[in-house]
Every structure is written in C-alpha cells, then in structure tokens.
C-alpha cells in the first residue's frame, strides 16, 4: 500500500477540486431568525459570479415567502461557504489511488435511506447526480426530493475527504522537505478511511463480494409512516437540545 501510494504520487499530483465530473460546491444552509428556521442543501458552481448569490437568496426568500431578513443571512452563508471552498483551490491534493467508502444515512421527508458503497477519489468523471437518479429509479423511489438529497450527501462527504486530502498533501510536502528521502508515512495515512486496495483488487481476491457481505452494501430504503415521522422528529429535537 505504501509503495503503491508513493508510486502514484508524482504522476497524480492534482490541484484541488471535487472529484466529480462537475466541480460543484455543496452548500448547506441552516438559518434561524426570530424562531423561524430555514434549512436547505444544494450545490453551487464556484465559477458562477458572486453577484448571483444575492439574486439567488432574494429569489429563494420570495419563493418561500420568508421574511426579508433571511436574504442577507442566506447570502452571507453561501458566501462564506464558497470562500471556504476557494481557499483550497490551487492547492495540491493527495491523489494517489484512493477509493473511499461512502455511507449514506439520511431521511428525506418520509423516506429513510441507508447505503454503503465505494467511491473512487480519482475518478473525475463520476457523477453523484446520475448515481442518485439511478438509485431512485432502481429502488422505485417516487419522492423527487430524494435523488438530489442523495447526490448532495455524496458530494458533502467527497468534499470532506478532499479537504482532508489537501491537508495530508501539505503535510507530506512538509515532511519531505524536513527529512529528505524519508518515506511518506503521512501520505498513506492521508485518506483515513481509504481502503486497502491491494486486498481488494489484488490478484488473489475477486472483486465479487462474498454473499454474506452483500447485506452490508445493500441499500436500505424505508418509507416512514406519519407516526414514525413524528417520533423521529421528536427524538431529533431532543438530541438537538
């Protein structure tokens, strides 16, 4: 693993970006003003001009009939999250062979989704939206809000991992400067959740999982009744306090 990682190191030093076909920033809003709470999650294209942010905020407030106070809050939240994202731009990120497990555990309205799958951090053609769409179609999920939520959840996790990756890349650079010729132990630690590729894709093993493992990676979709929903929301409220 170590050797493998360092072998790919030089060839695949990539500038920071979300490892998907479209470089979109996951934005999550959770704003509470005067007892009114607004929560939303969407993706934003960092290449769009920032003037769009205010336009978007105004439009959202208008559409959702929120008090006008929210406009500034929304705009500033987006702005800050974009700024966070941009702060990483231009930096190298560790881009060795890295396949990470993505775990989904989310609730969208009445639908409860649990899933577990692998994601290749070097596949810059991956498409979470397409994946989510296929997911909903295959599992017969009717709720149109589910697919974007899944895609967003994936993006959020990817974003997190990429940030880690940048940090580890920086770390490895520093350690290289400090002790030349030393091995890149921090680099291999980088992903944290990175899987042992040799074990997974080596010649010895089959890429077909064992049957008992299937359950682990099987998506679970539950449709909740209203009572269950209430119970769940009550519990969440309690946890929040």
């Amino acid at each position: 693993m170590k050797g493998q990682a360092s072998a790919y190191w030089k060839a695949s030093a990539v500038k920071f970006r979300i490892p998907t076909a479209q470089n979109l920033v996951p934005i999550r809003l959770d704003i509470e003003v005067d007892g009114q709470r607004f929560r939303d999650a969407f993706t934003w294209n960092p290449c769009d001009p920032d003037s769009e942010i205010v336009v978007f905020a105004k439009r959202t407030v208008k559409d959702l009939k929120l008090p006008p106070v929210f406009v500034t809050h929304i705009a500033s939240s987006i702005q800050s999250q974009l700024a966070d994202f941009r702060s990483f731009e231009g930096q190298d990120m560790y881009a060795g062979e890295k396949i990470v497990p993505i775990k989904l555990d989310l609730r969208v309205n009445h639908t409860l989704i649990k899933d577990h799958f692998l994601w290749d951090m070097n596949n810059f053609e991956s498409d979470p939206e397409e994946f989510a769409k296929t997911f909903c179609r295959d599992l017969g999920i009717q709720d149109p809000e589910v697919a974007p939520a899944i895609a967003f959840a994936i993006r959020e996790q990817l974003y997190e991992i990429v940030i880690q990756s940048v940090a580890s890349a920086r770390e490895s650079r520093i350690s290289k400067k400090g002790r030349r010729g030393a091995d890149h132990t921090p680099a291999s630690k980088a992903g944290g959740a990175t899987l042992d590729l040799v074990k997974l894709f080596g010649h010895r093993s089959s890429v077909v999982r064992k049957r008992k493992e299937w359950d682990v990676y099987e998506p679970i979709v539950d449709l909740l009744s209203n009572e269950e929903m209430d119970a769940l929301e009550a519990r969440e409220e309690r946890n929040a306090r």
Binding site: I99, F117, L118, D120, F131, Y217
Partner: peptide
C-alpha cells in the same frame, strides 16, 4: 438494476 449489482461488487460505483 444497477443498485442490485453494485452491492455485490467491490469498486467505485461510478
């Protein structure tokens, strides 16, 4: 369906 297949295969879902 794809979702059915991917649970049995190790690898990048994309």
């Amino acid at each position: 369906t794809f979702t059915e297949v991917r649970k049995s295969l190790v690898g990048d879902v994309n």
